[in-house]
Design a protein around this nucleic acid. Structure first.
Lengths: 186, 186, 186, 186
DNA sequence: CATGAATGAGGCTTCATTCAT
DNA sequence: TATGAATGAAGCCTCATTCAT
């Protein structure tokens, strides 16, 4: 299976970044693990910063795409919200490094280097969805940005806990999802 | 008032760490800003890692102490919870670097190097409090660790939002606190 | 003839080490004198310790190879021994830094970091030779390791003296060699 | 038992120097092990170099004194030589760090910093003794300096071997001493 | 005499990045 | 495109030495 080297590098980078942090992961260690030459990395990314940002955007895109995929337009707003939370947690459990990476990035000073525009494009769908929820009085009237961020952090906290305790208890996950829903529901 | 150099170093470090991140803050820049010799830092801390951990523990301790200070034993559990959230947010608004620092640390790989024991000692009071809340059926029956962490992350998200938007709207804060209470209340 | 940078670094290091000692020779001074970048040294050697050890092994290998080269299988044991001592001294006189370096290393705590195995491989030939000498009752029945080491130290002492006094008197050298032979001969 | 702090420092230094080398032994580690303050070392020695030299001279003095002590003026030259070698080895076995330290020092660049005069004063007795031996045709007619140094190195080699192999076999020692005598005897 | 906090120069090493092949 | 040797700035940390107490 010939893999695109760019993808390979991003995948490898995400793994190493979550294990050791951005600055304790050298570009050399990434290329070594990906079994390409040191110089190759710089053919695909202008510099390390760009690799980090691209890895972030790619991962976030993947995350949003995955969640969006299973949503049905016909579902009720409440059910959709529940589905979003549940799917997010399940995705996180299957991709613990990726979700840890997303958290680490958004808490780091690198966040400021990512073009705002791009983030919003990705999130547009969910923003629209939340706006409707507020209009319908189903969602608390709080700033959209605030809700999005808080929810994301809660998802990460939840995944972190589940991964750390190696729990896959569906009943527990259900209760956690309900808590999160209480947080945003009117 | 001659300030203890150790304290001075921690204070300076916290400031620089939140501005630039752990790894983009050189030990030299810390000592320079604190106006002590480079070697002095290593007189008080075995290495940079220890400085980071100590700064984290110190800051967390300060945060918990501040919140505990104003709690009254006679208050109802519900009121106490509300007070904790509100005071936390207010402390965060007054100490934005410190709370950002706490977030950055807990999202970083450095977190693993801190003795769990110590963290728990600091949090013992709040753990006890939550346990009682659960017993009284006022707090959702979720794992204590999970609740603590989630709440902390929510507080940080909230402070972050308020600081970023420079909002000090007490009504908004009130509503945010109520959201958080919905999250943990049964 | 473009010289291999690894060789160049070892050669330069040996020179500086003998002049100033291991610890008063900075890696920077080595790279500077060798006219390569500081990082280049660490491209070829994991760290300074490895450079020191490699320089030692390389030099010892060179020494043994040089001595072995001129020995003839047909010569009597006694003549061979004499040849070994004489050639060793002559090599030492032509390579005073190298022999001083070997002495300095074997007297230093770095010696313990060199794989014993490697040393013995190099010396295998001479060990075999000495064993035969003992069997033939021409060499005193003393531990091989002991003889080898003592002889090496005597050679170094001798070279040191000759270099220090700038003497190249073949008659004196002849007498010194005879002394050394008395030491090991039965 | 109140010990002179100067002596204590020298004793501690010799131990640490032989274990780790001069440059990997910090003055701080010496004072720490000797349980005195860092500054105290610099009351007794102008600087580290002086400590090293003093430690060397002291140790050499002690060595010579010990050997001289048991010599009898009435003994034959041959017997005296034998006694010197034997006693030296025995002293070395009882003081392995000290003899290793002497070797390490004489192979290091620090040797040049010691006043020649002082060394010769210490050795005067043995030089005189050797001169007589040569005159009596009992000792080979080789440069005195050369003989002294070679013998010292042989003693060190011998002690090293005996300490390393943990051998205290008096018969082996006897044979080693005879070898050394063959070296210098006419 | 003794202490040990404080100093700051300098050493070892890492690492993002370049470039000739 | 791909390679990896080479670069050199910069970071962490050590350590001999000083000095106020």
């Amino acid at each position: 299976m010939v893999e695109d080297k760019r993808d390979l590098l991003i995948k490898t980078a995400v793994k190493l970044f979550t294990e050791n942090g951005f600055d304790n992961t050298s570009t050399a260690s990434i290329t070594k693990k990906a079994k390409v030459a040191t110089g190759t990395l710089f053919h695909y990314f202008k510099n390390k910063k760009e690799l980090i940002s691209e890895a972030y955007l790619e991962t976030k895109r993947e995350f949003f795409a995955e969640i969006k995929k299973n949503l049905s337009e016909n579902d009720s707003t409440e059910n959709t919200i529940k589905k979003i939370f549940t799917d997010s947690i399940l995705w996180g459990i299957s991709n613990p490094e990726k979700i840890k990476f997303l958290l680490q990035f958004s808490a780091s000073p690198y966040i400021s280097s990512v073009a705002r525009k791009k983030i919003e494009d990705d999130e547009a769908y969910f923003i629209e969805f939340l706006k409707n929820g507020i209009k319908e009085k189903l969602v608390k009237n709080l700033p959209i940005d605030y809700i999005l961020n808080s929810c994301f952090n809660q998802i990460v906290s939840t995944v972190n806990y589940l991964v750390l305790t190696k729990s896959k208890d569906r009943r527990l996950i259900e209760r956690m999802v309900l808590s999160m829903m209480d947080f945003i529901k009117n």
